[in-house]
């Protein structure tokens, strides 16, 4: 009798990139729903625009590189990039702004470096930074979070769609009427205006511990993140590293000067900290690869986020922190090689 011949091992692999990416997308659903609840339907339009352009960029680049676009699309990584970009953008963002970020992320940061697995930089963050540099004015318009107690104008579904498509508000609305500063912006400008933390935190948009709306997006992002940890899609090293890197200096500074430094909970829930810790920094391709290396990588991102928020020109520093640490990855990987069993301390064969 004849048999087919394969190479050992003969047990089918248990993991799958496409399934990992799908689960990352599932894990973002709760946070996305809360985003829509607090900041309106703009998030969905951004997600659709980002997805369309990420997929288009992927297809075009795979065609140009002479490869099968279906193969690249079937791993869902372009959609993860689109989702992360959508989370990073204000819910009111004109389509061409989103498209610019999506295309830059996919075409330049991903495919010009060789596609999935070879990109040095996190594509979503590279795309976001390009928007930050090219269209800073659009990133300042965050609609006010849904809250009953302050006076603001709420944009309807169609009005939001209109802004996404044209970049202009309906005649009845003005930017000032619909938008509010983000908690991080408010903190930064408040501190610049010599107010104390207590005064700033008393603003209604500061919410209970890290900004109205933002804190709940953060909570549900964390739920998704813990689900990924349980499913072993991500490991604990990077989220814990980001936490340590950000919260340790935040706590120290808060204890030293509670009047001029917001506390650790504000840093944790304000801005994109939790999204970064569980979803952005954990992008395996652009992160360090050994467990020790990942802890260091995470800590580096955390420290940079704190430094940029505290002393930098930008309100939040997630994108720059991630991209800067992406650059440090080869060095981290080289310096954190684990001890190979049977080798001596110098890593040499005895």
């Amino acid at each position: 009798m004849k048999f087919v011949r394969h190479e050992a091992p003969y047990v089918a692999p248990v993991a799958d990139v496409a399934s990992m990416m799908r689960q990352v997308l599932f894990a973002l659903v709760p946070a996305g729903l809360v985003h829509v609840w607090y900041f309106g339907p703009g998030f969905i339009f951004n997600l659709i625009v980002a997805s369309i352009f990420c997929i288009a960029g992927e297809v075009i680049m795979m065609r140009i590189r002479g490869r099968s676009p279906a193969k690249a699309l079937s791993d869902y990584s372009a959609l993860v990039t689109a989702a992360l970009l959508a989370f990073a953008l204000p819910s009111l963002t004109p389509w061409w702004v989103t498209a610019t970020g999506a295309l830059f992320g996919i075409v330049v940061a991903k495919h010009l470096y060789g596609g999935l697995g070879f990109n040095v930089f996190n594509p979503a963050m590279a795309g976001y930074v390009v928007i930050l540099v090219a269209f800073p004015m659009y990133l300042n318009v965050w609609v006010a979070p849904r809250m009953g107690d302050i006076d603001y104008q709420y944009l309807s579904f169609l009005q939001t769609l209109g802004y996404t498509l044209t970049g202009t508000l309906p005649d009845s609305a003005t930017i000032d009427a619909i938008s509010r500063a983000t908690p991080l912006d408010a903190m930064k400008s408040g501190l610049n205006n010599m107010r104390t933390i207590a005064e700033i935190r008393a603003l209604p948009l500061m919410g209970d511990f890290g900004g109205r709306g933002w804190e709940w997006i953060g909570n549900l992002t964390a739920v998704g993140g813990f689900w990924l940890l349980i499913r072993k899609i991500i490991r604990w090293h990077i989220p814990v590293g980001v936490g340590i890197g950000l919260l340790l200096p935040a706590t120290i500074m808060y204890l030293v000067g509670p009047d001029s430094n917001p506390g650790p909970t504000f840093h944790l829930f304000g801005g994109a900290t939790i999204l970064c810790a569980f979803f952005i920094a954990t992008d395996p391709v652009s992160a360090a690869t050994s467990p020790k290396g990942r802890l260091i990588y995470g800590i580096g991102i955390g420290i940079l986020i704190y430094a940029i928020r505290r002393w930098g020109a930008y309100a939040d520093g997630v994108a720059f922190a991630v991209l800067l640490m992406n650059m440090a990855v080869p060095a981290i990987d080289y310096l954190t090689r684990p001890h190979i069993v049977g080798h001596d301390e110098q890593g040499q064969q005895p």
Partner: peptide, 30 residues
């Protein structure tokens, strides 16, 4: 061991550096 053919896991794609291989390596290689 005589068995049915191992189901194909789908095409081989590029390494995404997830590091799971290093986590299970008994010799602690990367």
């Amino acid at each position: 061991l005589i068995m049915s053919e191992t189901p194909s896991p789908g095409p081989e794609i590029a390494c995404i550096r997830c590091g799971e291989c290093a986590a299970v390596c008994p010799v602690q290689l990367l």
